[in-house]
Design a protein around this nucleic acid. Structure first.
Lengths: 123, 123, 123, 123
DNA sequence: GTGGTCTAGACCACG
DNA sequence: GTGGTCTAGACCACT
């Protein structure tokens, strides 16, 4: 259901956050669905419960999940998380493009850049 | 010649590396031009010489600059740094696009994404 | 007769307590009226009987209801619960106002604060 | 500079957050001022560094402070934190008033309520 | 069983 | 020295 890459330089809790975000964005974890319990997920991933807790806390205070003591963590409704994540991706791509421009890339180079990445759409 | 942003959460040495890379990529620091000495740059930016040292070391072992004992640090020739940086940017954009796909973005959404960012080219 | 909000982060038993208090304060559950049995209320709300039990215990030891073994739970007489709740609300508002002062709010700001909330009285 | 109340039922890290928010809101910690280091504050309050860390993380992701590895934590600029906190207080008072209304408080009672708390302004 | 807080102690990256 | 992540293990509140 969720995989960690021990060689990924990003912190473990961040990988957990990203993984859960993806599951939610893709609808695999639907609105009001219960997430795995902190302890259980920790066991599955063989990491410390505190690390999972940290990931859940992050999702919680970004409004992506809600949490009820003694019951569990659940997917928030109407969070529009998929749209939000896509918007973030767009913004990051924009930032990269601007960086390319500040490097003095010519119009031709930028066109080619766009062309070469647009091919991946149809992979 | 180079500016730091104290509010930028990125490590200082990374900002220095990026700044120098941009100066070189844009030709402001041309091939074989001498870089400011470690001490001098540290003073100018009012940061620790160790930090500048670390930045120079990074550029050095990526072949972007070369170092002559007792004389100083100089921009490498034929480093093709501009191309390298552009290639990195392309790779990062590709990664983002793949991430969008893994989020379950439809073809239409991807098209629109590409369209909306391509507008920035002509800014 | 009583509704729970599964998205409310407050503990369930607290929601039950609050709900019953309001019913009593508004006279919907009058003096000496019998409350639903623990099991029945638990079933209605589809929650654990232990949770209802805890809520009743709380009301009991605050004197808001009384319990007769083998017969059930009943609303206490002369409990003045409505007045008590209003007094609690006043105390909490006082605490908030003091907090505002400790934040260094000016007299004008406090006046405006009072003014803006007093409008809700006539909603 | 900051005091904890061990009898306060609120979590310790929350008390730390509140305390720092107040210091910032009142201008005692001005824009770009450096906060005490995690370890130092932990020692002063005789609590675990992780607890302070958690408090700082909260302030960080609410944009109230910014953080630079190896340098420290600093007060963000233009956060308008004082206004934000006052607005929160107003909203909480509004919620309480509405609760009083739902309890069936009469207009007179509400007027008296407002009157009795408004006296604290001039304490 | 659930989530949440806290301590203790370690390790890493950065300056 | 600074912040940040992670583990291990304990305790509390709630269901």
């Amino acid at each position: 259901m969720l995989q960690l890459d021990r060689h990924d330089p990003r912190p473990v809790y961040e990988q957990v956050v990203d993984g859960l975000e993806q599951l939610i964005a893709r609808g695999i974890l639907a609105e009001d669905a219960q997430l795995p319990s902190v302890r259980q997920l920790a066991m599955e991933l063989s990491i410390n419960p505190n690390t999972v807790q940290k990931a859940y806390a992050d999702l919680l205070n970004r409004g992506i999940i809600y949490s009820v003591k003694g019951r569990g963590n659940f997917v928030s409704g109407g969070s529009g998380i998929r749209e939000t994540l896509l918007r973030n991706i767009r913004d990051e791509m924009l930032a990269l493009l601007r960086q390319a421009k500040s490097l003095g890339a010519t119009g031709d180079e930028l066109e080619e850049l766009m062309h070469s990445i647009s091919e991946v759409i149809h992979e």
